[in-house]
Structures are given as structure tokens and as C-alpha cells.
Amino acid sequence: MTLRTFSLLKGMPVFTIKGERIGTVHDLSISEMGQVTGLVVHQQALFKRAFHLKLDDISSFGPDGIVISQQDSTLTKVPADSICLSKDELLGRMLFSEMGEELGLLQDVYFKEKMGTIIAYETTDGFFSESTVIESKQPPALGKDTIIVSVYEQ
């Protein structure tokens, strides 16, 4: 099981298996159930275009780039029902436990690269404080104002 964080993926180049660069990772798309569904890739063109890349279409996550098996059918429009970490301002949103404890501001997410399951959240209390990693075995509740996560064994 390999874990990934959004902060390490952001800005990473995306290549086809034939070596053609198709863009860079710009955002992470998450379903309403709190599952990572894919990456938002900005293509290099006259006008920046954003495309959705499903996790299933990724051949490998390397330390310096991401490789996809084929380009034609892989790049689609970002699904209307997906939630994006940056665009929808999940990063910086307050995390609460289901018991109402304030856990900090969301700084990053840790997920299983093939399954898309978010297993931990990196939070901070502010600009000069250290970050904390909070593990959760349950999907988050992505609310308009906060994110509720289960931090207790169930």
C-alpha cells in the first residue's frame, strides 16, 4: 500500500506511456463520500484547460512524475459533482471530530494511491505552529463550513 499526499502531487508533470507531457497536477478531486476519485490536470496550451484524470487511468505515481496508459480516452472534463481541494477551498477549512473537538485547519490529505481512500489529514493551528497528522478510518463529512472526521475507533 503506497500513500500519497496532495502537497507532493501538486505541480507534478503528467506523461503518457509514450513520453508525451500532457500537463501538470493542479488539484485533487474528491467524491461527496470523501473518496479521492482523480486528479485535476492543467494542460499546457494557449488557454489553460483543466481535465479530470481518474485514478484508474494512472499507470504509476513516480517520485518525479505521473504516467498514464493512454491519453485519448483518459482526459475528461472535471465531473460537476466532484469536490476539489483547492478550488472548493477545502484546504484551510476547519476540521472537527464527530464529538465537536476542533482539530485544526486542513493542510493536506494522505490517501491510498490506487484505492483513493483518505486515511489521514494533516492539520495546523496557524502560520507558525507545527502540523499534526490525524488518522481516520471513516469517510469525512464535507460540510459547507467545516469538515467532520471520525477520530475514534469504531
Score class of each variant (00 low, 15 high):
L95I: 01
L103N: 04
I30W: 00
A45L: 13
L9T: 13
I22A: 03
D81R: 05
L91M: 14
Y110V: 03
E98Q: 09
F128V: 14
M33G: 05
I68G: 06
P79H: 13
Y121I: 00
G23W: 11
G104F: 04
A141P: 00
V14S: 14
S60E: 15
D81N: 10
V149N: 00
G34F: 00
T146D: 12
T16G: 05
E32Y: 01
V78G: 06
G100Y: 12
G104A: 11
T37R: 01
S31Y: 01
H26M: 10
T2Y: 11
S60M: 14
Y121H: 00
I17G: 08
H26Y: 04
E135D: 10
E130P: 01
Q71S: 11
V14C: 06
S150M: 03
S59R: 06
K144W: 08
R21E: 14
T24F: 10
L103E: 12
V67P: 13
G104H: 07
L53K: 12
D88F: 01
Q154S: 13
Y152R: 13
F15H: 09
T37P: 00
T123H: 02
T2E: 14
V14W: 07
Q43P: 03
D145P: 00
E98D: 10
P79A: 15
I30V: 05
K114C: 09
V109H: 05
A141H: 04
S69W: 15
I30T: 08
L91N: 12
I17E: 14
R49K: 08
P63C: 15
S131G: 12
Q43L: 13
V109C: 04
E101P: 03
Y152T: 13
Q154N: 05
V41T: 10
H42Y: 08
V25R: 10
V78M: 15
L55D: 07
Q107E: 13
